[in-house]
Nucleic acid binder design. Structure first.
Length: 99
DNA sequence: AGTGAGCGC
């Protein structure tokens, strides 16, 4: 389960997000996105959880919750550009496409 | 730099 976390405090680190999600289930990895030029946090990141059920539970609970004194946004992450994946859409998922 | 919509290498 790929999870997208946004509106993080610029002081928030991966370990803080890791700990928060570990409270709801096993966390595979956490990635905070930082600017490539300045190297400063962009204020959002990604969390990977091996258990989809725990991931959904974490999203429902951690979304719009408080972390490091700031409200955060937690959603399902969009799949990265995958032009190697067979078409046919099958399967699982169901991400809400804007537009 | 000192902010806050948004999707990573």
């Amino acid at each position: 389960m790929n999870i997208f976390v946004a509106k993080l405090s610029y002081n928030t680190s991966e370990d803080q997000v890791r700990s928060a999600f570990e409270s709801f289930g096993q966390v595979d990895s956490v990635k905070i996105i930082t600017d490539k030029f300045d190297g400063r946090s962009k204020g959002y990141g990604f969390v990977e959880m091996p258990n989809d059920a725990e991931g959904l539970a974490a999203i429902e609970d951690l979304n719009d919750s408080e972390m490091d004194g700031r409200q955060i946004v937690v959603k399902k992450a969009r799949p990265r550009e995958d032009n190697n994946r067979r078409g046919g859409g099958g399967g699982g998922g169901g991400y809400n496409r804007r537009y």
